[in-house]
């Protein structure tokens, strides 16, 4: 088992590195960040100075290796820089240094550290929505397959997977914020209570797709486990029906849903890119779009790295979760 985890983790590192490298070289084709950051009226000398400060005057492979932390720093504005080439320290990913944002004039890690909790809050709230409604609807439908109630739930799940957030989001805003006034029209609020209030509508919107998926999986699992011999045995022994459903039917159906949590993590974060735009939620998604449009390479790279790592952790958790919970699976 631990060997399996190690192998998976090594593969995760490889993929993360591949993603990072791809984006690094793609970013370079994005155009000149100096012109984008300093504006159209920047002087030649300003642009040159900016490039020197950020190490953009160095060959690409040096920038890349320096960014990874394999060779000494090429950025003059970094604390690791020294005019004496022998005294230069490293300032890359391996040293935990992701550089400074071109537009926020602050360390990339600090800006992300500021934004990440907001996106996580949205993600957690959406996950609660998915689990509560998805599992609830799935159990409801799974216990009465073929009935009108079941059909209604199934129809709902088809609709749910066909409704993208950029459709439901604006509609939800229109109906529940503008017309009914139940929720704020967007933004993030100032106090923790306000954050939650502002988060309800985006979380509901973000959770629709996942709710449908959970409901479908749960329904299938419940139907499957209610057909099992041990359910028949329990009934034959005279166990009350409520307990049969809870202890035998549902309990064994929850496993796949639990493992899906790990897999849904990256989806929630990337789904947040769109949801955050709709609801003007100042999280990681909004930061990403802003950084790409402003050619803020260090920020884009850092966000990419974060996304890639999250995907890998999600996959790993899902695989390990399956292995831990299902005794039939061995590695």
């Amino acid at each position: 088992m631990s060997r399996y985890i190690l192998r998976r983790a090594a593969f995760g590192f490889l993929v993360t590195w591949l993603v990072f490298t791809t984006v690094f070289f793609l970013m370079n084709g994005l155009g000149d960040p100096a012109a984008a950051v300093l504006g159209a009226n920047a002087q030649e000398s300003q642009i040159r100075q900016f490039k020197e400060q950020k190490g953009l005057d160095r060959p690409l492979h040096e920038q890349y290796l320096s960014y990874l932390g394999l060779i000494p720093c090429v950025r003059r504005d970094s604390p690791a820089w020294s005019d004496d080439p022998g005294a230069r320290k490293h300032c890359g990913i391996l040293q935990g240094d992701l550089g400074e944002s071109y537009i926020h004039h602050d360390s990339v890690t600090r800006v992300i550290g500021h934004r990440l909790p907001r996106t996580l809050l949205l993600g957690v709230m959406a996950m609660v929505v998915e689990l509560v409604f998805g599992i609830g609807a799935g159990i409801f439908a799974g216990l009465r397959p073929g009935t009108t109630g079941d059909r209604a739930v199934m129809f709902g799940t088809y609709l749910g997977t066909s409704l993208p957030t950029y459709v439901t989001g604006p509609l939800a805003l229109l109906v529940f914020a503008y017309l009914l006034g139940w929720f704020p029209v967007g933004g993030y609020g100032a106090t923790p209570l306000e954050h939650i209030q502002h988060g309800i509508l985006p979380a509901l919107v973000l959770g629709i797709g996942g709710t449908a998926v959970y409901a479908r999986v749960m329904r299938g699992e419940v139907i499957e486990s209610m057909r099992q011999e041990y359910v028949r045995t329990a009934r034959a022994k005279g166990v009350p029906e409520g307990r049969v459903i809870l202890a035998h039917g549902i309990r064994n159906s929850l496993l796949p849903a639990v493992t899906m949590i790990g897999l849904s993590l990256p989806g929630l974060v990337s789904g947040a890119i769109i949801t955050e735009k709709i609801f003007a939620w100042p999280g990681l998604g909004a930061l990403t779009i802003e950084a790409i449009n402003a050619l803020d390479a260090p920020m884009v790279l850092a966000v990419t790295l974060l996304f890639a790592v999250m995907v890998q952790i999600g996959n790993l958790l899902a695989d390990v979760g399956v292995a831990l919970m299902d005794p039939r699976i061995q590695y």
Binding site: T22, L26, M27, L30, S270, I273, T288, I292, F307, V311
Partner: peptide, 14 residues
């Protein structure tokens, strides 16, 4: 395991 949307956005832009 590529972050689909992010890669697509960066690729389109760059």
């Amino acid at each position: 395991s590529l972050p689909f949307l992010l890669i697509a956005i960066v690729a389109q832009k760059s």
